[in-house]
Simulated scan of single mutants.
Amino acid sequence: MEANKKVSIVIPVYKAADTITRCVESLENNTYKNLQIILVEDCSGDQTIGVCRKLADMYDNVLCVENDQNHGVSYTRNHGLDYAEGTYLMFVDSDDYVVEDYVETMVTAVSDTEDEK
C-alpha cells in the first residue's frame, strides 16, 4: 500500500449541522492520514455553514466550499471534484461516519488491484 498517495473525500452537505462534525471526526481519526476532506455546503439556510467553517478552521486538511445557490446532491458532489487534489477519490455522505480503517482498507484494495496489472 502506498500511504503517500493523497485521498480526496468529497462530502455534500445540506442541513447537516447535527451530523457533519461526527462525520469529519471519524475521517480525521482514520488510520490513513494523507486526506483532503472537501465539505461542499449546498445553501442549507441554517447553522450548517457555520459548523463547516469551524471544521475547516480546526483541521488543516478540511476545505469548506459553498455553492452559490441550492443545487442538489449530484451537482454538489461534482462541484467538490473541482477542488480534489488526491490520487484517489471517495465520497461520504454528511450523515455517515466511518470505522477507523475505512480509508486504509479502500486504498489497500485499490493498490492491490494496481499491483496485479
Rank of each mutant, 00 (worst) to 15 (best):
K15S: 12
K15R: 15
K15A: 05
A16I: 11
A16E: 15
A16P: 01
A16T: 07
T19D: 03
T19S: 11
I20W: 04
T21R: 15
C23T: 13
C23K: 01
V24D: 02
E25H: 03
L27F: 08
L27I: 09
E28G: 00
N30G: 07
T31D: 10
T31P: 00
T31H: 03
N34V: 02
N34T: 02
L35Y: 10
L35T: 04
I37N: 13
I38S: 07
L39Y: 04
L39R: 15
V40K: 12
V40Y: 01
V40A: 03
E41C: 09
D42Q: 10
D42L: 08
C43V: 14
S44M: 07
G45S: 06
G45L: 08
D46A: 04
I49R: 11
G50C: 04
V51F: 06
V51D: 05
R53V: 13
K54S: 09
L55I: 13
L55W: 05
M58H: 02
M58W: 02
M58T: 15
M58Y: 04
Y59E: 14
Y59I: 12
D60M: 06
D60F: 08
D60I: 03
V62H: 14
V62F: 09
V62W: 13
V62I: 14
L63N: 01
L63T: 10
L63G: 03
V65K: 08
N67T: 08
D68M: 09
Q69I: 12
Q69L: 09
N70K: 15
H71A: 11
H71W: 11
V73S: 06
V73C: 12
S74Y: 12
Y75L: 02
T76C: 12
N78T: 08
G80T: 12
G80C: 05
L81K: 12
L81N: 04
L81G: 02
D82S: 05
Y83D: 06
A84P: 00
A84W: 00
A84Q: 03
E85T: 07
E85Y: 01
E85P: 03
G86T: 06
Y88K: 01
L89A: 03
L89P: 00
M90N: 03
F91R: 01
F91I: 06
F91L: 04
V92L: 10
D93K: 00
S94F: 02
S94A: 13
D95E: 05
D95N: 13
D96F: 00
Y97W: 15
V98E: 10
V98L: 07
E100Y: 09
D101F: 08
Y102S: 00
V103R: 00
E104G: 14
T105V: 06
T105Q: 09
M106T: 12
M106F: 04
V107E: 09
T108N: 14
V110R: 12
V110Q: 12
V110E: 15
S111D: 15
S111Y: 14
S111L: 05
